[in-house]
């Protein structure tokens, strides 16, 4: 189920600013209180797919005395796509909440 939303989650993880793959995974784990403990490698196909779609850009960066890493950033199209996905998720989750509400079982 998470797999279908991974692209949106990755976009949201990058909203705060550019980050490399490891930092993105850590951010997802922290943000979900470790509920989304997916294999860390699965984030890389998503990052490359989003970059191919023009929703992310990336560049190698080497901090002084640090390890060379590839940093990913949201593009304008990525920010717009994230806003769209948020709206779609909000509608979807409200509908599911309504259907699963214990106080108002469905069908009525």
């Amino acid at each position: 189920m998470l797999k279908g939303h991974l692209d949106a989650i990755v976009l949201a993880a990058l909203e705060a600013g550019p980050a490399h793959g490891y930092a993105i995974i850590e951010s997802i784990k922290r943000g979900s209180a470790s509920t989304f403990d997916l294999p860390e490698g699965t984030v890389y196909p998503a990052l490359h797919r989003l970059e191919e779609a023009g929703l992310l850009s990336s560049a190698w960066m080497t901090p002084p005395g640090g390890r060379r890493r590839r940093l990913y950033s949201l593009t304008k199209a990525g920010s717009a796509a994230l806003a769209d996905r948020r709206k779609a998720w909000s509608r979807f989750s409200q509908a599911v909440d309504t259907l699963l509400d214990e106080d108002r079982p469905w069908p009525a």
């Binding site: 890389y44 490359h48 390890r67 890493r69 590839r70």
Partner: peptide
């Protein structure tokens, strides 16, 4: 090549 470099950095960070 690109992914090998990225993954290597990721795994050492971890």
């Amino acid at each position: 090549r690109r992914l090998a470099d990225e993954v290597e950095a990721h795994l050492w960070d971890a």
